[in-house]
Amino acid sequence: MKTSKRKLLLLFSIVVIGYLFIMVFPFLWIFITSFKTSGEIFGTGAFNIIPEDPTIKNYITILFEKGILRAIFNSFVVAISTTIYVIFVASLCAYAISRFQFRGKSILLGLVLAVSMFPQMIITGPVYNLFYDLGWLNSYFVILPYSTITLPMAVWILVTHFNQIPLALEESAKIDGATRVQTLTKIVFPLAAPGVFTTAIITFIAAWNEFLLTITLNTESNYHTVPVAISFLRDQFSILWGEVAAATTIVTIPTLIIVLIFQRQIVSGLTSGGVKE
């Protein structure tokens, strides 16, 4: 009995270690490649674990010649502004859904859920025409249609969080003579803050990773975000893997930092809302 349990534990450990290795390996390999020279990557040294002749030339080219910094800047602008307005709009909506009784509530929830299931491709054509007519192509207005992906998800997670705040607290505040605004600022906001924060992080990541709308609406490289700028490195005549590796390493850093700092919130957001990818 004892030995079989130990064997099982050993097996589990091997599986977990194998899993960790598979998850980390691509990043590790990209990181190693980013310090290799082109000669080494395309020559016999392609599979060296330690670069023969470590160089930071790839990083210099990517940062100063290929405009990856501009893409990172754009991504921050787009992701932060999307997060701010989506969280504001979604909080209002989720608060009403969670706290008030009204007709058409389940229709509204159903609608929110349905929109989150739409194939994104269905909105790109008409939105492209709309932006063309308004002269909004190649601008930061792209954050408005980002609401299709982020808003339903944000509403959904926030409703779950708001429902967990006991209604009794608000009622007793009211009995104690608090005004509506006081109830909101003194009771609801502090209690809702963790949920709102969780939703904000998930929204930020979703906006940061958006690809289709940016590639169709913002064709000028000045407005490319990280995922789109990265995809264009693939299109080049001969793929310079060293630069690709350096670019990938750089753009992974912001995501890595966010995951490391906010992993608890992310997991709670993912599991409470049954969020999509």
Binding site: M23, P26, F27, W29, I30, T33, I205, W208, N209, F211, V226, P227, V228, I230, S231, L233, R234, I239, W241, V244, A245, T248, V251, T252, T255, L256, I258, V259, Q263, I266, V267, E277
Partner: peptide
Amino acid sequence: LIPWAIPTAVAALMWSYL
């Protein structure tokens, strides 16, 4: 969380190299 959180386009480019 890391593979989930990085942009799909970045992951795809990484794999195209591998």
